[in-house]
C-alpha cells in the first residue's frame, strides 16, 4: 500500500506492507537514530513525534502515519545539540543506545512543561529505560540545561 507523510518536514511517498511498523519504516527511510530495545513497548528507545506528540514507533503501524507529520532526532538537530551537550557534560550518555528516545521524550517534556520539578521529570521520562547511567547523570544534565534556559530568560 501507498502512504504519504512528512518525515522531518520532508514529504515522503512510499510503498509499504500493511504490517510494516513505523520504526522499521523510519529506519528504512534513513532515520537511524530510531532504536529498538524491546518488542513489548517497554523501553522507550523508539520514541518519535507524530504530529508533535511522542509515540512509540514500535507500536504504531506505518500505515497509521499516512498523512501525518513525523519527527525523529535527525529533524531536531539544533535542540539535540543544545540539550545533548548538557548530557554529554555529565558523561551520562554512556553507551548512547537509549539516547535518541530519551532525547525525544525530554524535548517533548521541555515543550510541554518548561519548568518541571524533579518528580515531574522522573514521571515524564519513566518510560525511557537506560541500563548504563543509573539515571542520576541524566537528571543532573536536565537540571543544568533547565537552569541555563532560565538564565537565558527564554523557555527550554
Amino acid at each position: 500500500m501507498q502512504i504519504e507523510l512528512w518525515i522531518n518536514e520532508k514529504k515522503v511517498r512510499a510503498a509499504i506492507e500493511p504490517d510494516t511498523l513505523l520504526i522499521d519504516f523510519l529506519r528504512e527511510q534513513g532515520c537511524s537514530s530510531v532504536k529498538r530495545g524491546c518488542e513489548t513497548s517497554n523501553c522507550g528507545l523508539c520514541t518519535v513525534f507524530m504530529d508533535e506528540k511522542p509515540v512509540l514507533s514500535c507500536s504504531v503501524l506505518a500505515a497509521r502515519a499516512d498523512g501525518h507529520h513525523i519527527v525523529t532526532l535527525e529533524g531536531l538537530k539544533e535542540e539535540a545539540e543544545g540539550f545533548g551537550a548538557y548530557i554529554a557534560d555529565q558523561g551520562a550518555e554512556q553507551c548512547g543506545f537509549c539516547n535518541p528516545g530519551f532525547m525525544m521524550n525530554a524535548i517533548a517534556m521541555f515543550r510541554e512543561n518548561p519548568d518541571p520539578t524533579d518528580d515531574e521529570i522522573r514521571e515524564y521520562l519513566s518510560g525511557n529505560l537506560c541500563r548504563c547511567s543509573g539515571y542520576e547523570g541524566q537528571m543532573r544534565g536536565i537540571k543544568a540545561y533547565l537552569a541555563f534556559c532560565r538564565q537565558k530568560g527564554g523557555q527550554a
Binding site: 545533548g84 551537550a85 548530557i87 558523561g91 548512547g96 543506545f97
Partner: peptide, 18 residues
C-alpha cells in the same frame, strides 16, 4: 577531570554508529 567523552555528541545526536 570531568572531560566529555570523545563520542558524546555523536551519541546524543543519534548518529548512525551502531
Amino acid at each position: 577531570q570531568p572531560i566529555r567523552k570523545k563520542d558524546a555528541m555523536a551519541l546524543v545526536c543519534g548518529k548512525p554508529v551502531y
